[in-house]
Design a protein around this nucleic acid. Structure first.
Length: 432
DNA sequence: TCTGGGGTCCTAGGACCC
DNA sequence: TCTGGGGTCCTAGGACCC
């Protein structure tokens, strides 16, 4: 089994496409008051900036970093190139996210699976990934299972390769902390710690009954196996989506119920649009509400038949909000649909569904999407392609450079200057 | 103005059914 | 005369992953 992980993926794509950021700290993530870091470049990690850290803290640790809000079209494009390359090597490829995948090497065209053979193959593959992505690097791990491959890819980051020879798995794992096991996060680690279990070696000494008592049935059984390096999970190339959701955290807490209803309505519309785009519909509509104190509530309701209609989802979402006490303020709202079916209910009455959201556009004071997000691609009538360095007080600052034409000028414009437009790539061919 | 967004899976209780 | 035993569906919450 091979596991491939692109190094500091989002930040690396930014450095590739913005030559002035190469070798410099780059932080990609939410740039608002309540944003968190998605990816920090290795230069930023030297200052202690980490994924999932609040952007506020990242700014205080590394004020001179470039803070960018992310360009998912570019990440998707790079990801497609990598996944395509992997699929050319083995039909059994399981993407875990845009930047990670498992590859079943038994289905690849290799003369054998000896360590030397696999090592040479993986090295070549890493090189081809760098070519296919015009310069991104990948860390790769190879082992006798998904679990071991994944642990291995982490051992020599960035730009590394580790092949774990068969038979050496337990020697590798035993000294490691229990959090290397997939499924052991902070809560489980704390339970185990209270039972005096810190390392995989210690976990291995715990019998199954005790483990089930500590962490529950399903989880306990899994950990018992993983602690012994037993993992026969297959590579699953395609999996069906089980839910579709949209959520948002707002820079200031919401208190106005009408505004909340307006936001839920808008989110319902986005969920419906995504359902339709994938030819899906679902029976269960859920909302998620995070209060000012971070307590998180959810409410759901199941319909008799699946829907992808914005109006239906919106009405249900708003009605689910009514029994919640939001008087202390709401920091997050979300709408989701689950219980998905890949078909839509026949319209027995022959009506064409009307899909106008029944609430008028609502003026949303603090939460409107920034038109000029830092890092976004723009195009100027005279100066061509560039990216937004910063914006505010009615002014946008643009650095004119691309991956292939670095060292352009930096200019500032009025936010409503008609010569300046967001740049979006040609829409990708429909294939998903 | 600590704490994103998109997901998956599990648990536990109650309803309901045979 | 006490209170079966599954199974499935639904809801709410929580842990975890990238």
């Amino acid at each position: 089994m091979l596991h491939l992980d692109l190094d500091a993926f989002f930040a690396a794509v930014e450095q590739r496409d913005k030559p002035s950021l190469r070798g410099k700290p780059v932080v990609v993530g939410g740039v608002g008051g309540r944003g968190v870091v998605s990816t920090a470049s290795y230069e930023a990690r030297r200052y202690g900036v980490r994924s999932a850290m609040s952007t506020r803290e990242a700014r205080s640790r590394c004020p001179h970093a470039a803070f960018l809000s992310g360009r998912f079209h570019a990440y998707r494009e790079a990801s497609r190139a990598v996944m395509g390359l992997l699929r050319s090597v083995s039909p059994l490829v399981e993407p875990l996210s845009l930047d990670e995948a498992f590859v079943d090497l038994q289905q690849a065209d290799l003369p054998d699976l000896e360590v030397a053979t696999v090592t040479a193959f993986a090295e070549e593959l890493r090189g081809r990934v760098t070519e296919a992505t015009r310069g991104l690097t990948a860390s790769v791990g190879v082992g006798t299972s998904k679990f071991i491959a994944k642990v291995a890819s982490d051992l020599d980051k960035p730009d590394g390769l580790v092949v774990v020879p068969p038979g050496t798995e337990q020697d590798l794992l035993r000294p490691m902390h229990v959090t290397v096991l997939p499924g052991v996060g902070p809560a489980t680690a704390e339970r185990l710690r209270r039972a005096g279990i810190h390392t995989v070696a210690e976990l291995e000494q715990v019998d199954l009954d005790e483990l089930v008592r500590l962490v529950g049935k399903a989880h306990g059984g899994g950990l018992f196996q993983l602690a012994r390096a037993l993992d026969d999970r297959p590579v699953v190339p395609e999996r069906e989506a089980k839910s579709v959701s949209v959520e948002g955290t707002y820079d200031t807490d919401l208190t106005d119920r009408k505004l909340m209803e307006g936001l839920l309505t808008r989110q319902a519309g986005e969920v419906a649009a995504r359902l339709r785009k994938s030819g899906l519909s679902g029976r269960t509509v859920s909302i998620k509400v995070r209060l000012h104190d971070f307590t998180t509530l959810s409410r759901s309701s199941t319909l008799g038949s699946p829907t992808d209609a914005a109006g239906t989802i919106a009405r249900l979402a708003r009605s689910l909000l009514t029994d919640l006490d939001t008087s202390g303020g709401v920091r997050l709202l979300g709408v989701g649909v689950s219980g998905l079916a890949d078909w839509v209910q026949e319209d027995l009455f022959g009506d064409t569904a009307e899909e106008e959201p029944e609430l008028p556009e609502i003026e949303i004071p603090h939460h409107s999407r920034r038109t000029w997000a830092p890092g976004m691609d723009v195009e100027h009538d005279e100066l061509g392609r560039g990216w937004v360095w910063g914006s505010g007080r009615g002014v946008v600052t643009v650095r004119f450079e691309t991956a292939t034409s670095p060292a352009g000028p930096v200019r500032s414009y009025a936010e409503d200057d008609p010569a300046l437009r967001p740049w979006t790539p040609e829409p990708a061919p429909e294939d998903e």
